[in-house]
Amino acid sequence: MGKKLIEFRNVSFRYGDEQPWVLKNCSFDIYEKEWLAIIGHNGSGKSTIAKLMNGLLFPQEGEIIIDGQQVNEESIWSIRKDVGMVFQNPDNQFVGTTVQDDVAFGMENRGIPREEMITRISETLSAVGMQDYLLTEPHRLSGGQKQRVAIASVLAISPQVLILDEATAMLDPKGRTEIMQTVNNVQEKNELSLITITHDLQEVVQADRVIVMNDGEIWDEAIPRDIFSKKDDLREIGLDVPFVAILADELKANGISITKEPLNHEELLEDLWTLHLKT
C-alpha cells in the first residue's frame, strides 16, 4: 500500500446539538492510488464521510488530516483542490449553461488562465468520452452523460482523490456501466485515489478495500472477498450479497466444498471445475 493520504481520527459528527450523532468515533485511513468502497444502508453516515473529506462539513469531535493538512476553515480551499467530488443528482451539480462552461467552472474559481482551461477542457472531456459535446446544453444530455461531465470537471483541477458519492444511484444500468468504465480508465491513467460510496455490488467487488458503515459506526473494514463471506450479517444491517456469494453458500449446503469465497462467476466455475475433475 502507498502513502497515507486521508486520516480520520476519532471523528464524530452531528447536524445540531439536539440531533443524534450521524458518525460515532470513526477512525480509518485511505491510501494513495487505492480504490476504497464505502457501503451502508441509507442513513448509515456514509455520505457524511464524503462531505467531511472536503470540508463541506466539520466534525464536532476528532480530526481529519488530508495529505498532512488538518481540515479546517483555513485549509479547505487548498484541500478542495486535492479532493474532488461527484454527487448523486446529475442535475443539481451542473452549473454551466453548456458542457464546456461546466468543466470550466472549477478552473475559473481557481483563477486558471484561459488558454490552460481550453487545453484541459479538451483533455478531460476526451478522458470521459464527451469531447463531441463541448457546446451541448445540460437538458440535452442523459443522466450518465451529465455525470461524465461532472467527472471531467473534477479531473480538470487534477485532484489526488476522486469521491463518487452515490454518483450512479439515479442512473439506469446503461448510465451506470458508462460511469464505471469511465472511472476505471481515469483511475488507472491519473493514478488517483478513488472513493466510491454506493449500494451497487458491482462497484464494491471491483474495489481494493471496503468499509461497511452501520448506524454511524464502522462495522467492518476489509477486502471485498472477506466482506462477502459475512452474508447473514450483511443482510442483518440492510445490505445485499452478490448472486455468486449466495450460490456458493447453497452449494456448500449441498455438500460441495468451495475453497475460496468467489467474487465473480469465473472464480466459482473454476472452483467447481477443479472439483468436477477430481470426482
Binding site: F243, L251, I256, L269
Partner: peptide, 28 residues
Amino acid sequence: LFENKFGKSIPFERQSIKEIAQSIQHIV
C-alpha cells in the same frame, strides 16, 4: 457460463438459487 464450461445445460425455469445449487451438485 456453466454450460460452456461443463458442456451440460441447466435450463432456466425461474428456479430458486437453492434449486440451481442442487442441479449443479448433480452435474459436478
